[in-house]
């Protein structure tokens, strides 16, 4: 009997680890799903006179992508967003989060912009309102301005197909 004790202790540990591993999943169910998207009005990068507010998009289903020029994962998803901007009709807005070095305009110039507008959230307050804990994060917002989906981490073609497309179809976009 005695010789099984180490194994038993280990089994208990493993059970706790397994629980702990999935306790803090990156995919936090956002409290905003089904709630109105927090309102804001921000200047738009590269267009001196223009401001952007979620209210501008009323009546449309749209996607808001939170990104930053200093964020490497965002660079990884950039070509995916470029392709999506070409191939499907849903407009993508790119919230430029905490861009302290003011690099967004130059970067989009160089690599192209998948966005219809790039609101400039310099101090990160809007991001905080949306519960952003890191970039990139992406939201689907419907015709009535209700948040329908939140995705944490970069988008690749698979996540778009499996996660975004069904939701967009359901919303009739």
């Amino acid at each position: 009997m005695k010789r099984w004790i180490p194994l038993l202790v280990f089994a208990v540990l493993v059970a706790f680890f397994a629980k702990g591993l999935f306790l803090n999943p990156r995919e936090v169910p956002s409290p905003f799903i089904g709630k109105p998207a927090p309102a804001f009005t921000l200047p738009v990068v590269g267009e001196a006179e223009r401001t952007f507010s979620p209210a501008d998009m009323k009546g449309k289903v749209w996607v808001m992508n939170v990104w930053a020029p200093w964020c490497v994962s965002c660079r990884q998803e950039h070509p995916v967003l470029m392709a999506l901007a070409q191939s499907q009709p849903v407009p993508i807005v790119g919230l430029n989060w905490k861009d302290k070095d003011r690099e967004a305009a130059a970067l989009l110039e160089r690599h192209g912009s998948p966005y219809v507008a790039v609101p400039d959230d310099l101090d990160g307050k809007v991001g905080i309102d949306y519960g952003v804990t890191g970039t990139p994060e992406t939201y689907i917002i419907d015709q009535a301005g209700i948040v329908r989906l939140k995705h944490v981490g970069p988008i690749d073609p698979d996540t778009w197909k499996s996660k975004f497309e069904p939701k967009l179809k359901e919303l009739g976009a």
Binding site: N24, V28, S30, P31, F32, K35, C71, I128, G131, T133, G134, T135
Partner: peptide
Amino acid sequence: ENYMPPEAAHAVEQAQKAQATLA
């Protein structure tokens, strides 16, 4: 720099959940 302490993230998350329920 770009990482939030898990406890801090937890607090913000809890508050937002609570607000969502209140709403």
